[in-house]
Simulated assay, not measured.
Amino acid sequence: MTRVPDTDLAVAAAGLVKTFGEHRAVDHVDLEVRRGEVFGVLGPNGAGKTTTLKMLATLLSMDGGEARIFGVDVRREPHMIRQLVGVTGQYASVDENLTGYENLWLFGRLQGLSSSRSRATAHDLLERFGLSEARDKQIKTFSGGMRRRLDLAASLISQPPLIFLDEPTTGLDPRTRGQMWDTIRDLIRGGSTVLLTTQYLDEADQLAGRIAVIDRGRKVAEGTPDELKTSVGSSTLQLRMSEAADTAEAVDVVRRVLGEEPVLTPEAGGMNAALTDANRAADVLIALRQSGLSIASATVQKPTLDEVFMAITGHGAEDETDSPMEVVR
C-alpha cells in the first residue's frame, strides 16, 4: 500500500479552470475533501463534474488553479498522485473477452505486482465484491451491475487511499444501485476516502456526508445534505384528516395556529403547511385535537435535494445538455 502523507485533507483544490475552445467547462471550482468521508459532487450532465475529477486524477491538465492530494501537488508530482488515487469512470475499462479473474490479474501485473501477488489480489477482490462464482466467466456475459463491481474492484488493486467514483451507478437498475451503495459504504468503513460525482440526487443524499453542487462549470453551493435542504426553505407539515368533511375546518385551525395559508392537496385528500420551525407541528396537532378533529396521518418533511437543486440553479438536475468534454469522451 502506498504511504499516505500526514494531512487531514485528502483533496484541497482552489480555482480549478478547464476550457475547451470557447467553452469553459470548469470555472474556478474550489473543493476540500476530508480523510475518511464520502464527498459528493452533484450536477447535471455537462456541469463539469467529470472534467474536475479528471484534472484531479492527472488525466487532464489544469488551465488554472491548483490542487493537492494528501498534500502532494497534482501539477508537480503526477506520478505520486497516481499512486494515491484509484479511478472508476462511467464506462467499464475491462476486456470483455477475458474472464473476471484474468482482468484483475492483468491489471495487477500492469501495476507492477508480481504474478503470485496479482493472483492473490484478484482472488481477494473477487470475493470481496461478490464475484467469486463468476471468476471464470467472460466479461461479455456479465450483467451491468457485475461489470461496475469488477471495474471498481480493478481500481482498488493498488489499495489507494483515495477513490474517485465518476457516476458509478449510471444505467444500473434500482436493486443493483443499492448493492453498489453498500459496496461504497464498505470502502469507507475500511478507511478509504471517496470523491463521488453523480447526477442522481437520491444517491448524493444516501452516500455523501458533504455535497458540492456544480452547475455550468461553477460551484454554486456546498454543505451537508441537511444544510443544503435547510438553506432553501422551511420544513413542511403534511396532514390528512380521517374525515374529508373536516378538511375545511382543519384549514382554519392550521391558519390560526401558524399564520400561514395551507395548500390543499386534493389528490392526496389533505393539505401541506410551511413550518418556520418544525416544533410548531406539535402546536398544530394539539389545536386540531382540541377542536375535536381526527387526523389520519401527519408527517414533517424537509425539502428534498431535488427542491434544493431547483431553488439553487433554477432548473432540474437533468435539464442540462452535454458539454463538449462529455461528448468527446
Rank of each mutant, 00 (worst) to 15 (best):
M1D: 13
T7G: 14
A10Y: 07
V11E: 08
A12N: 14
A12H: 13
A13G: 08
L16K: 03
L16R: 05
T19C: 03
A25R: 10
A25W: 10
D27Y: 04
D27W: 03
H28A: 08
V29R: 08
R34P: 06
R35W: 00
G36S: 01
E37D: 06
V38Q: 05
F39N: 10
V41D: 04
G43P: 12
G43T: 07
G46Y: 07
G46C: 09
G48N: 10
T52N: 10
L53G: 04
L59D: 08
M62C: 00
R68C: 11
V72M: 15
R75E: 13
R75K: 14
H79S: 15
M80P: 00
Q83F: 05
L84S: 04
D95Q: 02
D95K: 02
E96N: 12
Y101L: 13
Y101S: 03
Y101P: 00
E102K: 13
N103H: 02
L104G: 12
W105G: 00
W105F: 12
L106W: 09
F107K: 08
R109K: 13
Q111R: 15
S116G: 11
S116C: 11
S118M: 10
A122K: 09
A122C: 12
F129C: 11
G130N: 12
E133V: 01
A134W: 06
K137Q: 10
K140Y: 14
K140C: 09
S143M: 06
S143D: 05
L150G: 09
D151H: 13
S155F: 00
L156V: 07
S158E: 06
S158Y: 02
Q159M: 12
Q159A: 15
P161D: 02
F164S: 01
F164Y: 10
F164K: 01
L165K: 02
D166G: 00
P174D: 11
P174R: 09
R175K: 12
R177A: 07
G190L: 13
L195G: 03
Q199G: 04
D205A: 13
A212I: 04
A212C: 09
A212W: 00
I214V: 13
G217Q: 10
R218H: 06
E222W: 03
P225L: 06
P225I: 03
P225H: 09
T230M: 12
S231M: 11
G233C: 04
G233K: 05
G233D: 06
S234V: 00
L237F: 01
Q238E: 13
Q238N: 08
Q238I: 05
L239Q: 07
L239H: 06
S242Y: 12
S242A: 14
E249I: 01
V251N: 02
V253C: 02
V254C: 10
R256L: 07
V257W: 07
L258E: 06
G259E: 04
P262F: 07
L264Q: 13
G269P: 06
M271S: 10
M271P: 03
M271Q: 08
A273D: 03
T276W: 04
D277P: 05
R280N: 12
A281S: 14
A282Q: 12
V284I: 10
I286A: 09
R289Q: 14
Q290N: 08
S294W: 07
I295W: 06
A296D: 15
T299E: 11
T299A: 11
K302F: 12
D306H: 05
D306W: 00
F309S: 01
M310K: 02
H315N: 09
E320A: 15
S323C: 09
P324D: 11
M325H: 15
V327W: 14
